[in-house]
Design a protein around this nucleic acid. Sequence first.
RNA 1: CGGGGCGUAGCGCAGCCCGGUUAGCGCGCCUGCUUCGGGAGCAGGAGGUCCCCGGUUCAAAUCCGGGCGCCCCGACCA
Length: 482
Amino acid sequence: MAENKALTTRAADFSAWYNEVIARAELADYSPVRGCMVIRPNGYAIWEQMQRALDQMFKDTGHQNAYFPIFIPQSFLSREAEHVEGFAPEVAVVTHGGGKELDEPLIIRPTSETIIYAMYAKWIQSYRDLPILINQWANVVRWEMRTRLFLRTTEFLWQEGHTAHATEAEAEEETIRMLGVYRTFMEQWMAMPVITGRKTDSERFAGALRTYSCEALMQDNKALQASTSHNLGQNFARAFEVTFQTANGDLDHVWSTSWGASTRMVGALIMTHSDDLGLVCPPRLAQYQVVIVPIYKTAEERTAVMEASDRVRKELAAAGMRVHLDARDDMKPGAKYYEWEGRGVPLRLELGPRDVSSGSVVLARRTGGKKETILMEGVASAITVAMNKLQADLFQAALARREAATLRGATKEQFIAKMENEGGLVYGGFCGSAACEAEIKEQTKATIRVLPDEEFRSSVAPTKCMWCGRPSVAEAVWAKAY
RNA sequence: CGGGGCGUAGCGCAGCCCGGUUAGCGCGCCUGCUUCGGGAGCAGGAGGUCCCCGGUUCAAAUCCGGGCGCCCCGACCA
């Protein structure tokens, strides 16, 4: 009985814990199709909050949404050499339709660059048509060998931005801008600290000039790439003949970018904040930010308590909060507490006869801090304060955890020991050699997550490669990754 | 694709080694009463192609052969 109720702890088995948190919170379930998941209402609600925030940020930076087909002619994929090499192995192919074999097989998009550039070629003639700033919310399919709920599923949901510009500088500026948008979202909404920077060539997106990413460290000290932003240069423009006439009459290929973030972020959210009681969701992304649990025995008490609860609910809703009054009559308050904790609700208000008579209500935080009694008068502003504090505390806790798991200026021996034992992030010099990078991966399973942007770099720049001792060309951040 | 584990009620499992009445247990579910400030109690009840196919046997959840599926670890990857 007890063993059914407690989750496997993070310390005992992180993977099992992760799966159990998802089951407990009813975020997702395995589907009849191997590798595919069903995103349940509680999980989809978090995704919707993510979408809402990101979508607004995309629009605020001048982008529009559009939609392109899920099917792409197979031949499109092979037009960009690196792209086909990168994606061909994991593409699902449709060979039949309407009861007949198709003349040309269609692939189910693993990403939409190819079909989008085929359209951009039609839409762009002049520099006056640029920039084109389009985003799409879509599902994509990548036939992965091994899947995990949210982190890697055969089909997943994401957004992919695709922009075309007249100059290289503009494209680079866009690439960096969107990386910044992701960073802001992850820090301010997800309460998840990230390191931004550039990917090495071996980790670069297939077909891109440069790939940038936001990297986060999970509670098991493994890194997770949480979003990417690519400067595609003119590679796809050349492959799809996306040309435009410049102001002085020349013909040029457009400079393009793409950037994406997926339902993987839900997995990142879980592994960043949740604890052995279940999901912990930061207030800004929570389906319900506040749940009110009424407490009563008699019918008279019930009437009074429900009346007061509903008044509080209305007041919080009027203040713009996502609030839920748990009016279920067949469940005791304690059972409700456990249920909402498992689902990650940030704040809970307990309201019983004692509170009705004293004009107060008991506030419980999902993490950090004991229960406290607050006045019903001005409850909305007190809750706002508590919510903002919880949001900030979650970020600080995650940041502190990451810093504690970070080692700068490590020697090769320290690096090897850290990767073998506790894991985490290691900053060190990198010689720039792909062979050296491959050898490190081979021997330690660690990869360069990112060549960090300036603000993340160590105060003293490394002079030698952490691994081979040759001169360092850039500081790198290594970790074992998802 | 390599290694490991598992398929028995909605979920989690026992039973299998050593074949033998109506296949059990916990949780959940339904009904009723009592409960209700941290996972309620009692009583009654519903719910099963024992993953599939074949074989052995008087008799198979159990033994044998084949297949399928899922989870975990690795290689691949957002």
